[in-house]
Design a binder for these strands. Structure first.
Lengths: 206, 206, 206, 206
DNA sequence: CATGAATGAGACTTCATTCAT
DNA sequence: AATGAATGAAGTCTCATTCAT
């Protein structure tokens, strides 16, 4: 049954998240899924294949979502970047166990299975970078910042959230994503107050 | 000799960084340090103690530096936050193997050794949060953003750099840190150009 | 269908020959025969039963042929031994996979199935020994050699051929068998040339 | 200690001989040698390495002995062949467990370790073949027999003895070897009686 | 007839750790 | 101070076999 297979993967993700890949035994995965150790190997060729499938599943989801945002013709460039960020945080919240495994156990995916993951991960990163660069070209974002560093900063803020995000937190993932977007777009300096009409008119008068 | 001890730790850090804690054997650590497997156990009680010492060494360095910035009376709040950020990126670059181990293998430090690390890590995080909150109170930073989220965003940008920072890169760690600071303070939107009084008045006059 | 059963045995013989009994899986046997793993167990009670049947089939063939030679009233004792030898080599060539399994995997046939095989194997060996002893008694073969050792020598020459015989070889199995017979009967020393009357008389005259 | 290593190999040979390579566990090898399972792996990298070492040790012995016979200047060609045969049987008796493993488990030596064994085995076979061919050229052996088949016959007689040779048997290995030599040289036919003076003189008179 | 999901015993192997020297 | 022989617990994986369908 497909069901058993999925249950095994689900068990593996949770255990890998909590205990790490190497500290999780096939035995435990089986037990949690309600099947024997042998059954796990009936469905998967090795423990490492399970790890790979977790990575693959997650990278596919993340890439699909990013591409969907990219396709939306109702959004401007800045709005696209905003949605990419919000989406990412939401997705990290939704797939948290997958994300943790993805970021913590990546190096243990066997060499031969790695290229597929790496390629999609790079494509995903490029989507973000391109939208950013488009926004810079279009004059929606300032041009004096290294686009590479900005991309890294975005991923840093979002990806790192897998370390502290918790499902029932005070803020929803969307709210968190929007906060990040605000910080990114406007900064935390007193930019807004500066735009208040009084000081501006004064400036003009001078 | 103290020297041997340090060489063993140095070997361990590099191996843990590259291969991960569980995939590194005492044998390998010994070989890389030029001593026997037995010697490793002569200097350390267990493999896990080595892992702990790596964590401890790093958290001490990071905490010391943060506290040093905090003490500087020559800096304003915003400047302090700027230095905290730059310091963090610089330190991540300098201690990269330690950082990778710190973020990837933390969960494998044995329960009984954990509190010491956790406590210092929290103290460190609070230093950042407090400076930020001071800046908000003092009116140097905008007040409409969740200080917790901003702190998370700062650590996200900086900490995540351990994933991609490389020693001989195009930008120095300090430049990277300053870029992050700029993004954080001013945002990537076209806010600043708007504040330029000359261009603004011109725009109005036209 | 009987056909399926035979196909499974045929697959098993070839795989056992090439990879050995323990390195061959039921799965592989099924695949090669074009049926599922379950089907193999539908036709046979265990993997070991298949091994046994292979042994049984082969020992029956070899025993039948030997007995047929024995019955032939048109042959003298020496001719019977010759035919036994030729027959054996021919049979080894024809049933090579069976022979290899018979000689290499015999020890893995389960205890309870063994007696049947052993008994027939012994009967077969005795046929050879008896014909040899008859030939000695009848004065067709020299009497100063240990009949047991001669029997061992005969089986050695013939049986060992399973290690190197190949179907499309330079010599036919019959030719090989006849060569063995010649060696056995006449030896490789220059006995025959000595009997040449011309050279002998010359030698005497000198 | 070298001693432990040797004891492990000795245990392995005996177990492999009796139960076969695949049916012997590392556990058993260790127990028989009086050490733990772990100790076996302390001395050998794998079970297969042990199998290889057994093969190597035996092929070295057999090759050395053959080469020593070859070097003896006190022997004529026929005597050399005789000694090669006698030596082989003696050696098979002495190293019987090794021989059984060599002939039964050869196919399980891992690919990468195989060439070394194969090369020496071929060199050994060639020594026998060459001596035989020299004897033929020199007129010591009849020339009308295929030298290849004769070589196969010799190895068949001798090698096959590993199946039935037993240490405390009725005949010594040397006696067995000499019997084989007699059969090979003179055949089992009534060659000698043919040389009886009566028939010979008759032949001359005719 | 035939399948294949599921099992569980048992194999090889790894490795942190101990300890006599 | 330092070694390395030896251990034993534990892990991944294999595979013959069973059984419901």
């Amino acid at each position: 049954m497909q069901e058993t297979r999925d249950r095994i993967i689900a068990s593996a993700v949770e255990l890998f998240e909590k205990k790490g890949y190497h500290s999780t035994t096939i035995q435990e995965i089986g037990e949690k899924a309600g099947v024997s150790k042998g059954a796990v190997f009936h469905y998967f060729s090795s423990k490492n294949e399970i790890l790979f499938l977790i990575h693959e599943k997650f990278i596919n989801v993340i890439l699909n979502r990013a591409e969907n945002v990219l396709k939306r013709s109702d959004l401007g460039t800045a709005e696209k970047l905003r949605e990419l960020i919000v989406n990412l945080v939401e997705l990290i919240a939704e797939y948290k166990p997958y994300v943790v495994v993805f970021f913590q156990e990546f190096k243990y995916v066997e060499q031969e299975r790695l290229p597929l993951i790496k390629e999609k991960r790079d494509r995903c990163e490029q989507i973000y970078r391109r939208v950013l660069e488009q926004g810079m070209s279009a004059g929606e974002f300032r041009k004096d910042l290294d686009p590479d560093m900005v991309t890294k900063a975005i991923f840093g803020m979002c990806d790192w959230s897998h370390q502290w995000l918790n499902p029932g937190g005070r803020l929803t993932p969307r709210e968190i994503g929007l906060t990040f977007w605000k910080i990114l777009l406007e900064g935390i300096g007193r930019t807004q107050p500066d735009i208040d009409p009084v000081r501006r008119s004064m400036a003009i008068n001078l």
